[in-house]
């Protein structure tokens, strides 16, 4: 027979799935804006390893010459991104969910063990509560990154009226680089996140949709449990 194991609270599922299209729009509109001054690349000396972004990428996504459109979407959906994020943080604080999410001093060592395990390098799997240490670090970092996007974004958006934020983020050019790097971070997070979700399987995925996982337990186990219950 089947047993229901509660996973994600309703509020967290809503915040999670609302964030998905909102963040997608923020990244897309951000690319439209970035295109107008696309100066970043990775490399050394005269060697470019990676250009942000190749023309083929722009063409495929119909990016060129949509700066004003990008700005319009970006400065409308920024509100939804911020509000959804703040509500999520508020919810985790009030509900106590943060306790499962915030890493502690053991988390970094354990996260490394999780990584080695997931990459099939080591067989040892550290104990976990709702989330393993690597998840705790990832899910807390992504919130800090969101916060960073708001701060650096506001610094670029109103560099004179929020001059103190501009100072805090290292000036206009640094704020723009940080804002861009955080976005690349989201994309990398997304790729790993999807890979992990696929690896974890359907049951885990539906935990984020219906809020619970289903565990199959053998009939005999149920009987034994029932017996145990009547005994106590």
């Amino acid at each position: 027979m089947k047993r229901i194991i509660k996973k994600q609270p309703l509020a967290i599922r809503w915040f999670h799935w609302l964030n998905f299209p909102i963040l997608a729009i923020m990244i897309w509109s951000g690319i439209l804006i970035y295109w107008a001054n696309d100066v970043y690349w990775i490399g050394f000396g005269d060697t470019t390893l990676l250009k942000f972004f190749p023309d083929s990428f722009y063409k495929a996504l119909n990016v060129p010459f949509h700066l004003s459109n990008g700005m319009a979407f970006h400065f409308v959906f920024m509100w939804l991104f911020a509000i959804n994020g703040l509500l999520y943080v508020g919810y985790t604080l009030i509900s106590g969910e943060w306790k499962y999410l915030v890493p502690n001093r053991h988390s970094f060592k354990e996260a490394w063990q999780v990584v080695l395990h997931d990459l099939h390098i080591s067989k040892y799997k550290p104990m976990q509560t709702k989330y393993n240490a690597a998840q705790k670090i990832a899910y807390t970092s992504i919130i800090l990154m969101g916060f960073g996007s708001l701060i650096t974004g506001l610094a670029i958006y109103k560099p004179v009226q929020f001059g103190w934020l501009l100072q805090l983020t290292g000036g206009y050019e640094w704020a723009r680089i940080e804002h861009f790097a955080l976005t690349i971070g989201y994309v990398l997070f997304f790729i790993i996140h999807i890979a992990q979700v696929i690896k974890a399987g359907w049951n885990n995925f539906s935990g984020m949709v219906r809020g619970f996982e289903v565990e199959n337990i053998k009939k005999t186990e149920v009987d034994q449990e029932a017996v145990r219950e009547t005994e106590t």
Binding site: I33, Y34, A36, N37, V39, L67, M71, P159, Y172, R176
Partner: peptide, 8 residues
């Protein structure tokens, strides 16, 4: 610091 809407 003169700022263009294009980003430079």
């Amino acid at each position: 610091n003169f700022k263009c809407i294009e980003g430079w």
